[in-house]
């Protein structure tokens, strides 16, 4: 089908974009359009106004700020995929972004668009959850910052006000003796994940885990941190036995199922993916890539 009628706006500056959003009723922000355009064509979305951020300056680029890698919200997924800086300083993001859609959609799809859209099957929100990325947001009263953990409100819904725009995402840079891994399961590569997992762990003396972060996608409306497992890991080295301990915690995960992928099936995937991802991340943290 074709998109329903709307008025199109192409502001040249962030303040102009925010002002349009403040003054227009039923307006939607258009970033890369790789989720919104299908929703328009399928008439799932019918905004009266589209505010295209494509001509707004200052929203693209990848900058190393030491503690964090700052990525402009309109930076394409393809640019992140090809960034040597991201590969070196935020390997979890680099590994995950290659799973996002196809090259033809990554050429247009943006980091900020994917994070704001919050599709349960999307990869980038899961990375943002695991690393607790910081979101930089512009609105009519100025800029504010929010940790990703406070960002999702529910299925496809964030805490962004209708007149706010995500401008940058700050992903914490990977530290010493730290390894990460992103894995997902789907029926064909490049499909939305049925379940995805992003993990990052830090090792101390004698390879003892000192810190762990685990996030799942696909099991609830928004990405979920697996706090129970994160708390169980520190204090001992990673091993297959520890993996079995984690697996035993998985039944406690709240998990939404449907007829195609029941909750129990998704929990099985969570357990298997988690152990595989942790094994990879531990090896990487120890300086051995797998």
């Amino acid at each position: 089908m074709k998109a329903p009628p709307f008025r199109y706006h192409a502001p040249a500056s962030l303040s102009e974009a925010v002002s349009l959003l403040s003054n227009l009723e039923n307006a939607r922000v258009l970033a890369g359009g790789q989720s919104l355009m299908p929703m328009l064509n399928l008439r799932v979305a019918a905004p009266d106004h589209l505010v295209d951020l494509g001509r707004v300056s200052g929203l693209t680029g990848i900058v190393d700020e030491g503690q964090s890698i700052i990525i402009g919200a309109m930076t394409t997924q393809r640019a992140v995929e090809r960034s040597a800086l991201v590969a070196r300083r935020c390997p979890l993001l680099a590994e995950a972004v290659a799973h996002v859609g196809h090259q033809q959609t990554r050429n247009r799809g943006t980091i900020g668009g994917s994070i704001c859209h919050l599709d349960p099957g999307a990869e980038l929100p899961v990375v943002a959850a695991a690393l607790d990325a910081e979101l930089r947001i512009a609105g009519p009263t100025g800029a504010r910052r929010m940790k990703f953990r406070d960002f999702p409100e529910g299925y496809l819904t964030s805490q962004l006000a209708p007149d706010e725009i995500l401008t940058h995402v700050a992903f914490p840079a990977i530290g010493a003796r730290t390894g990460s891994a992103f894995l997902e399961f789907n029926r064909r590569p490049a499909d939305f994940a049925i379940v995805s997992v992003a993990v990052q762990i830090t090792l101390g003396a004698s390879d003892i885990v000192t810190h762990a972060a685990i996030a799942f996608g696909g099991i609830q409306g928004a990405p979920v941190r697996f706090a129970k497992a994160e708390e169980a890991l520190p204090g001992r080295p990673w091993s297959a036995a520890v993996g079995e301990t984690l697996r035993r915690l998985v039944p406690e995960l709240a998990c939404d199922g449907d007829d195609l992928y029941p909750a129990d099936y998704k929990r099985d995937l969570c357990g298997s993916l988690l152990v595989r991802a942790m094994t990879k991340a531990a090896a990487r943290a120890g300086g051995r890539d797998v």
Partner: peptide, 13 residues
């Protein structure tokens, strides 16, 4: 020069 799905881009873009 970059491959794009022409159904997911508005002509105005």
């Amino acid at each position: 020069g970059a491959s794009v799905r022409a159904c997911l881009m508005l002509a105005v873009q």
